[in-house]
Simulated assay, not measured.
Amino acid sequence: MIKMIIEQRHRRLGGGLEVGRVLPFAKQRMVGPFIFFDHMGPLDLPLGVDPGVDVRPHPHIGLSTVTYLFSGDVMHRDSLGYEQVVRPQEVNWMTAGRGITHSERFEHARVHGDHLHGIQAWVALPAEQEEIAPSFSHHAGIDLPQWDDAGVVGQLIAGSAYGLTARAETHSPLFYAHLDMATGASAEIPGGYEERAFYIATGAVEFDGTRYESGRMLVLGSAASSVRALEPSRVMVLGGDSVGERFIYWNFVSSSKDRLAQAASDWKAGKMKLPDADDREFIPLPDEPAPFK
């Protein structure tokens, strides 16, 4: 059963970087613990691309960011001192907890040109772990189990599904996987979780007898289900158990509106440490922030 169909909405993040925003959506704030889902690109970044396209240092609390690329390179730097390029089919997993700052820059593109395409998701932390110490980990190779079966090449990004478990540390039950599907191939949408969805990044699929094109997320009920590719397709499957209501204010996520206000105040007052290797500029708190959501 389909509970909701969400079409990506175009959002400009600054410079030439435009993303397809899927979550949060007015009528579907989260899927399990996933509270944010942005489709980045596909976008050609020319040699010598303007630094204004970069995502300058900015803060987070109460969540983990999950960066996963189909193509392109992104350089991550954070206030814990980590400096790590994420490349296709690798994962940068950053847990903000009580607070972290980071930047994402297109340095490879600046020198060589690049084709950027990928997904950035945010995973809300359980209430009792929202204030844990921040951390960062990078995952590739055996950390991200892969399989190839009947026209489906899959890679598990996080959590447990398809009888496999990825190595990134998660804080609540979830799954997140990338499926490359040949024309006519079918794939199961993992069960056993409260909330599930799949997102069509490229191509077109059939679900319950209806065709769906790229740029759409289908939020599902709990019944067993599968999806069939009508052409070569890239599909992201995700879900997990609910962590309860969350509020979002700019780059902050929390179960407490007061905590969001404190984070905003701390950032505006310069109380959150910038990355040592990238501390010459930052994204200021919006002048007229939207009300807490």
Rank of each mutant, 00 (worst) to 15 (best):
Q129P: 01
A187W: 09
G97E: 05
S225R: 07
A133T: 15
K3C: 09
P173E: 06
L13T: 06
V253G: 13
A182F: 00
D44T: 15
S79K: 04
V243T: 12
A96Y: 06
D38P: 06
P33F: 07
S64R: 03
D73Y: 01
E281V: 03
V74M: 08
K273N: 01
R56V: 09
A224T: 11
A127L: 05
G154A: 02
V111T: 14
G81Q: 01
D149K: 10
V205N: 05
Y199S: 06
H139Y: 15
P134G: 14
F207Q: 10
R110K: 11
G154D: 02
M217F: 01
G14W: 01
Y212F: 12
M181N: 08
H178Y: 08
F70Q: 08
P145Y: 02
I35C: 15
S172C: 15
D279R: 15
G14N: 07
A26S: 14
R216G: 00
D241E: 08
R167D: 14
F36E: 11
L174Y: 01
D78Q: 08
H112Q: 13
V243P: 06
P51L: 04
V235W: 08
S135I: 13
G14R: 03
S255W: 10
D266N: 14
D148P: 02
F34Q: 10
A263G: 12
Q129L: 14
V237A: 06
S137C: 04
A96V: 13
D278T: 04
G192Y: 07
L274N: 13
I100Q: 10
R56C: 04
Q84A: 14
E213Q: 13
A127C: 00
D114K: 02
D287L: 14
Q146G: 00
N92K: 05
E90C: 09
L69S: 01
F252Y: 15
S64L: 07
Y176D: 02
F36N: 11
R228H: 01
P286Y: 09
I248L: 14
P57F: 04
F136Y: 15
F70I: 07
Q155R: 14
F70M: 05
H58P: 06
A166H: 05
G270T: 10
P232G: 11
R228C: 07
Y82I: 11
A229Y: 03
Y68W: 08
V152P: 03
